[in-house]
Nucleic acid binder design. Structure first.
Lengths: 200, 200
DNA sequence: CACCTTACCGAACGATCGTTAGGGTGACAA
DNA sequence: TTGTCACCCTAACGATCGTTCGGTAAGGTG
C-alpha cells in the first residue's frame, strides 16, 4: 500500500490545505459566497473536519486575513533592507511598490484575498483587522513623507491613497504571465512620478 | 386619517424603494451578505412583496447593475458634450474623469454598487454585465488614444487601467463631505499628468 | 498491553435562505 | 354595485447554511 502523502502536492498538512484553498475561493468568489462544504471539497476532506483545525468559519477567515497582512508587512521590511542607505526617493519608492506588488501576486493568495474581500466580511472580523491595516498604512505614510518632504501632509495622504488604488486594483486585471511584476511596479511608479507629460 | 405618502421621502414608489435600498445594502455589505428580508425591511415591506416587482433576487441585482452602467454612460455623454470642440487633452480628460467621479458619488448608488460588488456576484449575472462594461471601457480607450496619440496602444491600455483603479478605489476612502468631487477628479488627473515631480 | 493524541468521518441539528401559493384591500372604471 | 387591477400581505415550502455530536482508525508513549 502506498504511503500517505506519496504525492508531493499532498505534503501540505490538512490545516494548510484548508487555509490555501479557502483563501483562493474567498478571493475568487467572496466570503459569504463560499460555503464550508465547498472549502472542504477543495481541501479533500469533509466539512466537519474543518472544525478540528478552526473554531469557526470566521476564525478561518481571521487567520487568512492575518497572513495577508503579514505578507505585505514582511515585503515592506525586506524592501527597506534592500534600499538601506539609499537616498534617492524614486529608487526607494520603487523598491517598496515592487515589494507590495510581489506580495499581491505571490502564489500564496492571502494578501490578495485580504485586500479583495475586506469590504465584505462580517463586522466583527473586520473590526479586528482594522488596526493591523492602520499600522501598514502608517508605514507607507512615513515612507512617502520622507520622500516628498516639500509636500503638505494632506497631499501625501492623497498620493498614498492613489498609489494604493493603483497597486491594489491591478489585482483585477494584471496577469503576471503577461509581464513581470517588477515592470508593472516600475510603470506604476513612473505614472505617479512622471505622469503622461514626460511620455509625450 | 393621513394620506399615504404624506412624507415626501415616501413618495418613491415601492419598486424604486426596493431598488435604492437594495443598491445601498449591496454596496455596504455585498450581494450574498444581504438577504431579501433585510432589503424588505429597508424598503418597508414584506419579503414576498419584492416578488411582485422582481422575478428573483438575481433579476433585482441585474437591474441595479444596468442602472449603474447607465449612470457612467450618461456621465460620459454629458462630459463629451461639455468639451465638444475642445482640443486640449487635459481639459477633455478632466471633464470625463469628473463625470465618472460624479456618477460614482451621486446619491443614486447604482454605479458605486456596480463597481464594488461586481467581482462577487453570481456567474450568470456577471456574464450578462460584461459586454456593457466592455462598451464603456472601449469609450475610454478611444478617448485616451485620442489624447495620447504618441503613446503605443499598450501604454494607453495601462494608463486606462491605472486611471480606473485610481478613480474607482476612491470609493473606499473619499468622503464627498470633506472635499468636492471636482477637486478629487482634478487631483487624479494631475497625478496622472504631472506626477510628483512637478510638485517638488 | 493500555492509554492518549491527532486527524478525520457520517449524520444530523436549528437557523436562515430564496421563493411560492394564495389571500386581502383600496382605487378606480363600468 | 360589481369587477378589475395594482400592490402588498401571511404562511409556509424545500434547500442550503454553519455547526455539533459521537464516533473511528492510526500512531506514539508508558
Amino acid at each position: 500500500m502506498a504511503l500517505a502523502h506519496a504525492n508531493p502536492a499532498d505534503a501540505e498538512s490538512g490545516r494548510e490545505r484548508i487555509l490555501h484553498r479557502a483563501a483562493e475561493l474567498f478571493l475568487a468568489r467572496g466570503y459569504a459566497e463560499t460555503s464550508l462544504r465547498t472549502i472542504a471539497d477543495a481541501a479533500e476532506m469533509r466539512p466537519a473536519s474543518i472544525y478540528y483545525h478552526f473554531e469557526s468559519k470566521d476564525h478561518l477567515l481571521t487567520e487568512i486575513l492575518d497572513r495577508g497582512i503579514d505578507g505585505v508587512m514582511t515585503a515592506f521590511d525586506e524592501a527597506e533592507k534592500r534600499v538601506e542607505g539609499v537616498t534617492d526617493g524614486r529608487t526607494r519608492l520603487n523598491a517598496h511598490v515592487a515589494g507590495h506588488m510581489h506580495a499581491l501576486f505571490a502564489n500564496q493568495v492571502f494578501t490578495a484575498a485580504h485586500i479583495t474581500i475586506f469590504p465584505f466580511i462580517p463586522d466583527t472580523v473586520r473590526a479586528r483587522a482594522v488596526p493591523q491595516r492602520d499600522e501598514y498604512e502608517a508605514r507607507w505614510t512615513e515612507l512617502l513623507e520622507g520622500i516628498a518632504t516639500q509636500l503638505p501632509k494632506q497631499a501625501v495622504a492623497y498620493i498614498r491613497l492613489s498609489l494604493f488604488g493603483a497597486m491594489n486594483s491591478s489585482l483585477h486585471w494584471f496577469d503576471p504571465a503577461n509581464g513581470t511584476v517588477d515592470k508593472l511596479a516600475a510603470a506604476i511608479v513612473a505614472t505617479l512620478w512622471n505622469g503622461i507629460e514626460s511620455h509625450q
